[in-house]
Design a protein around this nucleic acid. Structure first.
Lengths: 105, 105
DNA sequence: ATTTATCTTGACAAATTATGTCAAAATTAT
DNA sequence: ATAATTTTGACATAATTTGTCAAGATAAAT
């Protein structure tokens, strides 16, 4: 199962881009990009979006990949991780049905 | 669909505890507890755990409730929210299978 | 084998977000 | 109306995230 970082690295290398070249386009230090590709640091959603643009990756897919990874790590060490996701699904449904409620979060 | 805050408030009131009394036991300001119960502020996992103890709520359930709520809000405004959860489930499975790998996150 | 380019790592800095305190305003109960 | 409780918002402090930089490690080229 590939990590977001691995996907990015593979694509970057296929395109023949250097770390520092992609980093420059993203306007971040190459050190950070290196860490992102090695799953040492999380990237921001903005960066993911830019990366998809630059590397010509399917943006929607990459964002799904990125968010699901974030969530998975958030709860992976919970014994009830899967139940958490089940309940979260119900809650998402509920929230989506009541999108224009007045409450703040 | 009840929020974590609502669950806490209902139980607290059933037990006849005042905000400041429960807050004192949690060692936080009553203002924060008020906000937690009104979903204005997230509580920490530690607090959830203490609250379950004090109010005699099922700790496992309350933590599932709390984590799923956190996740739901995290992705509720994503159009692909449900796919994200599906993929997250796979990733959790994967992570749980390889618990003793060497990588850091 | 040595030099050069690329990538990785860790210590630190800046920025952002989370968590908490306090006091005054609003609400509810007496 | 008074007193008790809860709510709100401005602000302070703490924790986490995100970034920079420079030195070390690895790989590629000569």
């Amino acid at each position: 199962m590939k990590t977001t970082g691995e996907i990015i690295r593979e694509r970057r290398e296929k395109k023949g881009l250097l770390l520092r070249q992609l980093a420059a386009q993203l306007d971040i230090d190459a050190a950070i990009l290196s860490k992102i590709e090695r799953s040492d640091r999380k990237d921001t959603k903005e960066q993911i979006s830019k990366i998809a643009d630059i590397l010509g990756l399917n943006k929607k897919k990459l964002i799904i990949q990125y968010l699901s990874e974030k969530i998975a790590y958030e709860i992976a060490d919970e014994e009830s991780a899967k139940q958490v996701l089940k309940v979260a699904e119900k809650k998402v449904d509920y929230l989506k049905r009541n999108q224009n409620d007045t409450r703040k979060h």
